[in-house]
Design a protein around this nucleic acid. Sequence first.
DNA 1: TTGTAGGCGTTATCAG
DNA 2: CTGATAACGCCTACAA
Lengths: 329, 329
Amino acid sequence: MNIREIAKKADVSIATVSRVLNSSENVSSATREKVLEILRKYEFEMDPWAKRLASKRNKTHLFIMVSRRILKFLDLESNEFYSTVINGTRNTADMNRSVTEIVEMESNLDEEKLKGVDGVLLVGGDTTAEHVRFFKKIGMPLVLVDQYIPTVKVDCIVSNGYDGASYAVKYLISRGLKKIVHIHGFLNHFGFKDRYDGYKATMEQNNLLPKTYEYNDEVMEDMKPLIDKMFNVYGVPEAIFASNDLIAMKAIETLRSFHIRVPEDISVIGFDGIEKGKYFTPPLSTLKVPMREMGSLALKRLLDIVYDQDVYPVRISLFTEFIKRGSSV
Amino acid sequence: MNIREIAKKADVSIATVSRVLNSSENVSSATREKVLEILRKYEFEMDPWAKRLASKRNKTHLFIMVSRRILKFLDLESNEFYSTVINGTRNTADMNRSVTEIVEMESNLDEEKLKGVDGVLLVGGDTTAEHVRFFKKIGMPLVLVDQYIPTVKVDCIVSNGYDGASYAVKYLISRGLKKIVHIHGFLNHFGFKDRYDGYKATMEQNNLLPKTYEYNDEVMEDMKPLIDKMFNVYGVPEAIFASNDLIAMKAIETLRSFHIRVPEDISVIGFDGIEKGKYFTPPLSTLKVPMREMGSLALKRLLDIVYDQDVYPVRISLFTEFIKRGSSV
DNA sequence: TTGTAGGCGTTATCAG
DNA sequence: CTGATAACGCCTACAA
């Protein structure tokens, strides 16, 4: 059943059917009703591929929204993770006749600014339920990138931090290490929370005591007090698993000031797999998140939502890959 | 950059470019090389939507593979969950010029039987890493339905049991109940394991003691001994959260034989949201899994893998929805 | 072995 | 307000 058949049955042209389908204005209500009835009767569902192929004539207009904090880092090109993710989306956008615009995620969102925007990507762990509710209310197609909010049913793309962390812990245990601590960022960022949960659960499954330390990675604060406290209360660990590569590298630097050798005294494993880690001394062991794929997938999913009908919201998790380098045994 | 432009640059027809792209035999190696070079030079990427639209002329041939156990239940139409999921996939297949065939998942898989098959859906919690490895080895596009295996990177569609379970527990707690036990099926089925983890974590977060009982739902064994043991050792709980609706209903029936009233004495919440639960006495509170969407999404994802290039494997989780009915306060 | 041409189902332009 | 028709990018008989 395609619109040609529908047109025949409704005794109108396919152009008219298309207009009804796209709720264009220029259709008399009589004609519209007639077509709608046939549509319902035959339970017509449009072919999304044909729709998009045909739609290629005009560009899809998408917003990539990021918090001021991340945006600042993006400009400085010092946030390799989000830079790479966003490169992935822009690249995919180019191949899909979509034009993207990077926009700051303000606290007071304005419906006016979204005129002509077909869909929105909300990038980063800063995204809150309130942000999501705003876009849902105005019916704007929406995908969260690197953030998941259990209480709001909205599409999102995240990395599988739970299993990645679990893998890291199991790996360290298999190398004979038992005193493994976790240094993590703020847990309202789902990525960090997920890795935290994976670390904790896996430690417990192996009858080891989880020990976690929160570190403010947003300002990259001095880590000496944290390490100091760790050494004094918990003792010197055999391994540190960090929320991400930047925290891991900060930890290694700090340990160095304590005259601790990595990996001889302490193994360190990060998360994300940014390039910088490869050239760090020692090269950083890490769990690699496919950043470009994350961005690319987010964009594709957003287009699915923009063009298809009745897309059920899902959470998409990307597998991570352990990369053994010099910072761990 | 489309194949027409490539054809022009390579000084061949678009048909020839298409043949090269689809590694058809009927191209001289000289021509093929020439085309491949241009393809590489311009980093050509095919438009998947156009490809699929055009491909609609011939049908995609897909296998839906299920274990003998599930297949048996399917025939008896007593396994509403998988029946509905598979209906969802077949429905979506119809709308996508795909022909599906339900095939029993044998232990000794045969490559011969897969001749002419474009992709495979592996349905059910019985799927093992070995199964997956077999298909990956022969390069067969593959999607797991209702099963996730952390150790193998393969596409899969599951329900978000963790958050569903978590929601159920929090709900019961909010109703003033504290003695909440969990009756679950075998934990090698990811769906059950996920719900189990969600139950356990949420209980602990609320400083409540998790208490779990394993029940063999595959043979629907007598539940009296289990309940008996529960009452004797743990005492009478205030609520039971079950791995799925069938287990929940079995529990309610068994409780009845103990002269326990539901929900007055014990609240019971299931999982899945099968129709049967709606007409049960008392009507079953449950977490509804969008079963048709699960099947539909699995098929769409499989087609993505069959037709697109370089698809990075992902896990897709479907949100669940709490449905309050008579079996719980 | 290669090219020509007619779809695939929808959108959008341009007449009427 | 409605209809004809040329795209969109690719595939594949069928012809050469």
